[in-house]
Computed example of a mutant assay.
Amino acid sequence: MTKPALPKIDPFLLWLVGTVIAASIIPARGAGATVFGILADIAIALLFFFHGAKLSREAVLAGIGNWRLHLLVLLSTYALFPLLGLIVARFSGGLLDPLLANGVLFLTLLPSTVQSSIAFTAMAGGNVAAAVCSASLSNLIGIIVTPLLVTFTMDGSGAMGASGHGSAAGLDSVRSIATQLLLPFLVGHFLRPVIGRWIDQHKAILQPIDRSSILLVVYSAFSAAVVNGIWHKVGLYDLAVLLAASALILALVMGANALAAPLARLPREDAIVLLFCGSKKSLVSGVPMAGALFAPAQVGVVVLPLMIFHQLQLFLCAWLAARFRREMTVAPAVPRPVQGEAAMLDRAGEIGLPIPEACQPGVVANLELLGRHAETLLREDRA
Results as ranks from 00 to 15, higher is better:
27 P>I: 02
299 V>L: 10
52 G>F: 00
148 L>K: 07
340 G>S: 12
333 A>R: 15
191 L>W: 03
16 L>I: 13
59 A>Q: 15
101 A>I: 00
62 A>W: 05
336 R>Y: 02
19 T>P: 10
29 R>Y: 03
98 P>C: 05
58 E>A: 12
239 L>D: 10
184 P>S: 03
84 L>P: 14
231 W>P: 10
43 A>K: 09
169 A>D: 15
242 L>M: 15
162 A>W: 00
185 F>M: 09
157 S>I: 02
202 H>P: 01
46 L>A: 03
30 G>F: 08
90 R>E: 13
332 P>W: 01
6 L>V: 09
34 T>N: 13
180 Q>P: 09
240 A>M: 09
76 S>L: 12
377 L>R: 10
350 E>G: 05
31 A>S: 12
29 R>P: 01
112 S>I: 00
365 A>C: 03
75 L>G: 14
188 G>T: 04
299 V>K: 11
163 S>H: 14
114 V>Q: 01
124 A>G: 14
356 P>H: 04
89 A>R: 14
367 L>F: 10
145 V>I: 14
374 A>C: 11
110 L>Q: 07
110 L>H: 04
130 A>S: 15
248 L>F: 08
220 S>V: 00
265 R>T: 06
316 L>Q: 05
292 A>E: 08
32 G>P: 01
157 S>Q: 15
259 L>H: 07
290 A>T: 00
365 A>E: 12
223 S>K: 08
18 G>K: 02
241 V>L: 00
128 V>M: 02
265 R>M: 06
183 L>W: 03
127 N>R: 11
325 R>G: 11
126 G>H: 02
27 P>Y: 06
28 A>N: 02
328 M>D: 14
188 G>E: 06
368 E>Q: 10
210 D>C: 01
87 I>N: 07
366 N>F: 14
366 N>V: 08
165 H>D: 13
345 L>I: 12
139 N>P: 06
134 S>A: 07
381 D>T: 05
378 L>F: 05
41 D>W: 01
158 G>C: 06
99 L>M: 02
80 L>Q: 09
293 L>C: 13
87 I>M: 12
256 A>I: 14
277 C>W: 04
154 M>P: 05
62 A>M: 10
220 S>I: 00
256 A>C: 15
127 N>V: 06
